[in-house]
Amino acid sequence: MSVVLAKGAEAMLFLEQWYGIRVVRKHRIPKSYRVESLDKRLRHERTIREARTINVAKRAGVPTPIIYSVNLETATIIMEYIEANRLMEHLETLSSSKQQKVFKQIGKSVALLHHTHICHGDLTTSNMLLHTSGKVYFIDFGLATTTHSIEDYGTDIHLLRRALNSTHHTSWRECFNAFKDGYQNEYGRGASRIFRQVEAIESRGRYITERIR
């Protein structure tokens, strides 16, 4: 039994039975538009990164799926199936106070990641799952990096702000503020330095006067 769960940009996700348990098989499919050697390099690299960082993130206390098996030849990962909704479609259905609670938690998790020197690399609401328990799971660590530079942590936060601003433009400000709260509480000293770096990164972009905030 194999059901297509989702078709992402990089990978196909299948819901399957595996030794008697329900699992997700994530297969990074070859892309015909790019040179073969580049394609292989990227899929190989990202499969390793994802498997490795998900485990580290889990140990740091960030909710992530359990990795069961990795096949580098086919760029496939078998992982725990989490019965939850993608935050992207679900965020607008939540009350404002619930939204802020969720983002406070996301802030805490991202701070935990950064404390463990992990950058997620693609923090959008399509990569977060909201469980009925209220827990937010992080998925898709294919672009994650291990890093000690606040420039990278800043980029991570900048990407989240960008994603909120473009996808959830009605409530993004409150959500981002809640995120900031959660992040600062968990990260403690040094958090303000990282948020200053976010400003620096954004001011370096093309044609910046003052962004609409």
Binding site: L38, R41, L42, G121, T124, L143, L159, R162
Partner: peptide, 11 residues
């Protein structure tokens, strides 16, 4: 094809 740096950060 000569390998070159590939920099994608989210979108």
């Amino acid at each position: 094809y000569l390998p070159l740096p590939y920099t994608v950060k989210g979108m």
